[in-house]
Design a protein around this nucleic acid. Structure first.
Lengths: 403, 403
DNA sequence: TGTAGTTAATAAAAAAATTAATAAACTTGT
DNA sequence: ACAAGTTTATTAATTTTTTTATTAACTACA
């Protein structure tokens, strides 16, 4: 897919036309529907004859295809065009602590191949890296798609990641030139990377509820606690990609020691892990719960507690309320600091929206100023299955300016 | 200055060339030195003949001027060009609680007229607004510059401001269409506005130490406490312009009631106001200070305490240390959240850099994670006089894409 | 059913921009 | 001091793009 790779090159004879071609592709890809020539030409600010010429060349290259005619109120009906869904493919990879998933998307981000939740143990070793690579390679082969049509690989991985340099600090940090350049060389494809929470943010930004918001927070509340910050319509990475370390915000009353070495980290009070701990404590103090009928206390994971809360278990609900209020207080502080128009609660906790929403809101009133609070709405993520995986893949489109 | 106003209009016959002309102007204005034709043409990606043609038209319009020839290692010596400093002027206005300042800058942001620190009381009244307007008008007249050469007015004002809509929420909020459109109509000039802290951030971003930083925090520590956040090289305003309400971060141990109605606001512990309060308390508890020799406790303002600290007064220094540690703790939290590469301490407290720097750093270690902390340096503002005023004016250049 | 009105697409003419060629100005090395 | 090499600046030739004009396709209404 040579046309997508031009942008890096300097000025040459073809460059300007190729830039315009890429603009056409981007316009069509961003548009919800197929577009007619006049609209395309207005969109990229060129005349109809040149636009038509470029479009025909793109059709010749099978990058753009006709999509029939559309109804109009009056006048000749225009032929509309869209990007050929088969013109390019994207690999999305999600590497979590205990499982790895790969999806292959077409250029419209429709999933056309999947190999999800393969059991796996993430370790900072050469061997583990080799496993990841062969799994990705296998998926590409199994998909039976033309290899020269792959545009790139987008990876989401737990831990701290520098999206700019392509380094992963916690895992595979033994590589000299960073993780992306290593994988890129091996697969002979451009590779982009970010951490699991940021990738979730990308998903919300382009496909979820943050689509129309210029300033939003995406909370990733699962076993851990993370935050993706979107400001001025862009994901905020910070200087080294560390932005969003919400779980280590020193805001809690708890004196529990966090793995980071400090006490009072928010993640020790607001997270799936914290929910499990608090559940155990409560049971030890004699409280009862529906969950105890089936399992012993040790085996109860936060997923089960969330489900129990949904089924009406009083203990689980009250624990969730506690968490909601604490999360709300912390978010209120960030609302003062960043004045987001929207907060999206994502991650595994999103299913507990009914129980959490009011407690978060009430927590926020404790800390947030009334003006920024009034202009900030709270929503729960409703993206389809595996939003992180889709966001991981979307990095590729984002870097090509196609989204 | 018609050429600067084109960008708003739609597509017309001249539009494309004017866009290129604006690019040339922007390139020359951003460059430190005057540039020769080949460099300009490479910079805006046009050929030498067209570039020369456009340049000559700009010279005809007196927007660009020749700036002699430069020495080169070999080959014919090129003529270099720069933006005519007299081609356009900018009005910067700073409206604080007790004083108002106006400066007029040329397009290089050199100050060519000033009327600073006029005594004044900011009130939310028609009368006060009229005073502001006549003062600005007077300054424009006194400057004796051609009125048609003014590019716009940039305002910095205390209180909460929506830079996008041009509304000021705390002052002059009785206007129907926002403050900027009102002043714009009266002065017949484009008007841009932001709050005093954001304007300070703009100053650091374009002329100060944040020039080369893509992610920075600018702390405005004077009688109040504010924060300007720069991420991805842009000032973060948030959804309604409220971003940076650092002073109301709920992070303190103090139980003092803040004007916002909450307790525990950081501004009640870290600010000039807080310094005055703590000084009073300490003296009442029997501590001594150099300052007491001259003034009664009631009359001592934070400026004096800062100066006393600089002169070695033990009480003042220890109070500053307290403030520094608290500020550092709060900043550490933000470092975790946003991973800035640079923190600039500006405002009146900047002169106490020697005393504050270590305590801020030690405070940060309490809350910040080691990784983001390591990549974050702390500096003290060293911009010239009235950085806020310069930042206010710079808004105009920023909106024209000339900076 | 036919005509006026509207928009799309194509073809021809005009304008604009680029490349190529050339002249001018300057440095360096012999 | 003068030829060779470099870079800038100007002019001429070629290519590209846009305007303008024309034809095609369709709706609405009489």
């Amino acid at each position: 897919m040579d046309i997508f790779k031009i942008q890096i090159e300097g000025i040459n004879k073809e460059s300007k036309q190729l830039v315009q071609k890429r603009k056409i592709i981007a316009l069509l890809n961003k548009a919800e529907t197929a577009l007619p020539i006049p609209v395309i030409c207005r969109g990229v600010r060129i005349s109809v004859p040149t636009g038509t010429k470029l479009l025909n060349e793109l059709i010749e290259d099978q990058i753009i295809v006709e999509a029939g005619k559309i109804e109009t109120d009056n006048g000749r009906r225009p032929v509309v065009y869209k990007v050929n869904p088969q013109c390019g493919y994207i690999v999305g990879v999600e590497i979590l602590l205990k499982r790895i998933s790969v999806s292959i998307f077409n250029i419209e981000m429709k999933e056309i191949f999947e190999a999800k939740d393969k059991e796996f143990v993430l370790e900072n070793t050469q061997d583990c890296l080799a496993q990841v690579l062969t799994f990705i390679e296998q998926c590409i082969v199994s998909s039976e798609l033309e290899t020269n049509k792959f545009l790139g690989v987008g990876i989401g991985i737990t831990g701290r990641v520098n999206a700019m340099t392509g380094e992963s600090y916690n895992y595979f940090n033994f590589l000299e030139n960073g993780l992306t350049s290593f994988i890129s060389q091996r697969l002979n494809l451009p590779v982009f990377i970010d951490n699991d929470t940021h990738v979730l943010g990308i998903s919300e930004l382009f496909f979820g509820k943050a689509k129309d918001a210029r300033n939003a927070l995406v909370v990733n509340l699962s076993r851990g606690l993370g935050l993706a910050i979107i400001m001025n319509g862009e994901l905020i990475s910070g200087d080294r990609g560390f932005a969003g370390e919400f779980g280590h915000m020193q805001f809690g009353d708890s004196t529990k020691l966090c793995i980071c070495g400090k006490r009072g980290c928010l993640g020790m009070e607001v997270s799936g892990f914290a929910l499990e701990e608090r559940f155990k404590e409560s049971v030890e103090n004699g409280e009862s719960s529906l969950l105890l009928q089936k399992n012993s206390t040790d085996r109860i994971r936060y997923d089960s507690i969330l489900q129990a809360a949904w089924q009406g278990d009083a203990l689980s609900i009250s624990l969730l309320h506690e968490i909601g209020i604490k999360l709300g207080k912390a978010l209120g502080n960030i609302v003062n600091l960043l004045n987001p128009g929207l907060i999206i609660l994502g991650g595994k906790f999103a299913i507990a929206s009914d129980i959490l929403t009011d407690s978060i809101k009430s927590g926020m009133t404790h800390t947030a100023l009334s003006q920024p609070l009034r202009s900030c709405s709270i929503m729960f993520s409703e993206t389809g299955a595996d939003p992180g995986l889709k966001g991981a893949g979307a990095q590729v489109l984002y870097h090509y300016g196609l989204i």
